[in-house]
Nucleic acid binder design. Structure first.
Lengths: 140, 140
DNA sequence: CTATGTGCAAAGGGTTTGCAGGGGA
DNA sequence: TCCCCTGCAAACCCTTTGCACATAG
């Protein structure tokens, strides 16, 4: 059983055929796929799974804190598996669209400190950097 | 002439009646209005201005670096006047939707340092904190 | 067996666009 | 004058939803 399905079982989520397929696809994916990509991967396993079900299942997984939705700009949402042990942020390569994860201790502490100073209890955050590679790698 | 219109003139942007009205409305607004709010404000001055024109003008202003578009979540985009002298970030009150601007020297330096360390030239960023007020002000 | 999930297609919300007519410089 | 801008409505894109049928437990 894959990590996503295990997390579902742990939360007593009813495991339908479709949810098993989508869980597998999410567990085995790397990078930050969007809904359509998950849909295609799921369809490669079971061509009858509908886009609506993929949307509904991803929303369910998100609400159960199993995956996290990334809304970079107004385009399609992307997803990543939640890993509470490794908080991280994202740097997006403007030329390739590549999403680089990074961690920084100062960032982590700073955002909590700032929220507190402003009189707020930090709930969540959105930290994205956009940039271009300095390594002269021209790519399309 | 207001600050937005002045910035347009400086960039040789053709000033139509509609653009003058929208510029005025943007210049005089406070907070972070969304397109519909600008549309209503503009219509209070000239009821014939269309939503499409508001969208087109805001996009123009954004492309000319006169205003900045904030995409907080997937809802309606919000806007603020660009002020290169006062870089800042946003904290969003989850209960009221209020957007609090803040500045932090460490944040500013940190993001540039991190991008550089990852081999990137920082182009832009998106830093939003979401939280709830500690001041026990229950509001709707 | 029953509550819950699914597929389909239509609806939804925000934003963009094609086109024909209008109007700055 | 000439090209750019505008209003209108339709189109777009991503996502959600109503409904009738299917199915996990």
């Amino acid at each position: 059983m894959n990590s996503i399905e295990a997390a579902c079982v742990e939360r007593n989520i009813r495991m339908t055929r479709q949810r098993k397929v989508i869980s597998k696809v999410v567990a085995e994916s790397s990078g930050h796929p969007n809904v359509e990509e998950f849909y295609e991967l799921a369809n490669a396993i079971n061509p009858k799974i509908s886009l609506a079900t993929v949307y509904r299942t991803l929303k369910l997984l998100e609400q159960c804190n199993i995956i996290r939705k990334l809304e970079l700009g107004k385009g399609k949402a992307r997803y990543e598996e939640v890993d509470i042990c490794h908080e991280h942020y994202h740097l997006i390569d403007l030329d390739t669209g590549e999403i680089i994860e990074f961690y920084d201790e100062h960032f982590k502490n700073l955002k909590e400190k700032i929220a507190r100073e402003l009189g707020y209890q930090l709930d969540s955050y959105n930290i994205e950097l956009y940039g271009r590679s300095l390594k002269g790698k021209e790519k399309d």
